[in-house]
Structure formats: C-alpha cells, structure tokens
Amino acid sequence: MDMRELIERLTSRHKLGAPIFQRPDLTFVDLTDNDRLRALLVELRDIEGFTHLVLLTAVDWIEEGKFQLTYMLNNRAANQTLGLRVYLERKDPVEFTSIHDIWPTAETYQRELREMFGINFPGSPRVMDEFILEGWTDMPPYRRDFDTLAYSQQTYRDRPGRATNDPRDHMKSKMYPEG
C-alpha cells in the first residue's frame, strides 16, 4: 500500500493537514475537521484495512492552548501504521467524541486520558472510574501546569542529606581530577 496515494485519496473527501512520512511504514497526518473523525476512522477501518487501534494518546501543548490526540492505527496486511492527529481547545471542561464502539480497546485509553489529562469522553463505558490513581483530588497529573516536583515536596517529607550531581561533571571530576 502506498501511503502517499492513500493520503491523496483521503484528502479529496476529508480535511487533512500536511502528512509527515516518518518511516516507510509510519505516517502521521493531522485532521483539521474534528467532527469528521468518526467517519474517517470507520472508513480507515472498514475500507482501507486499518483494523487495529495501536494506541490513543494525548499531548499537552500548553503554549498553543491545545490538546493533541493521536490515534495510531495499524494495517497488519500492508505493514503500515498511520498516526491520525486531532487538536482540541485547551479549556475546561475538555470533551471529545468517544470511539469505544469502533474499537472496544479505546475504552481503556479513554479512561486513562480522562484521569491523566482530564479529557472526558462522554458515553464511554466506566470512563469516570479510577484508572491508576486512587483517591486523586488534585488536577490531572499529566497536564503541564501540574508541577510534580512541587506537589511531591508539598506532600511527602524529604530525608535530609540528599545531594544531586550532574553525571557529566561528576564523572569528569572523578576521572580527571586535575582538569
């Protein structure tokens, strides 16, 4: 399967951004029209043979005020992986359409994203349940405005006497003491 040809074919009907051909078997492309996501995913699954959802993950672009969702799809027969990227506005509450009915595995990823990034997927089964964290009351910890160091210092007591060395400088002073 030629990915350039596929992207061209899809661009005629969907609003896609400029594709990135990262490797012969790995391509990334942005979808600019979020409402068309389900249609595009179903088409990729049923017609183009991308039957496997490898993962669904998010990136927090705090400077641009956006969340990026990446749907990694795999076509086993053609040995091709396609990363479909969607951008959401970074404002509370963040919600997006659930795809658990297209791939049941998405349910788990969506639970994780709800917990770690605070992106809700209404209608996804058990999406409000706790995933990894238990009794978490603070902001979702994978958001970039969550300062994990400050949080840990305000929560857990330090043991005095801990020192930090820069590995490079430390090894340099050990191996070449005279400089």
């Binding site: 964290l133 910890p141 160091l149 949080y151 840990s152 857990y156 007591r157 330090d158 043991r159 006497g161």
Partner: peptide, 14 residues
Amino acid sequence: NGGMYWDSYNTIKR
C-alpha cells in the same frame, strides 16, 4: 529517600 522517584507525585519518599 525516594531514590529516582524523588520528584514523583505518586510515590512516597520516606
């Protein structure tokens, strides 16, 4: 003292 997880939000230190 937390080891390599010294700045983790979810692991205890002492």
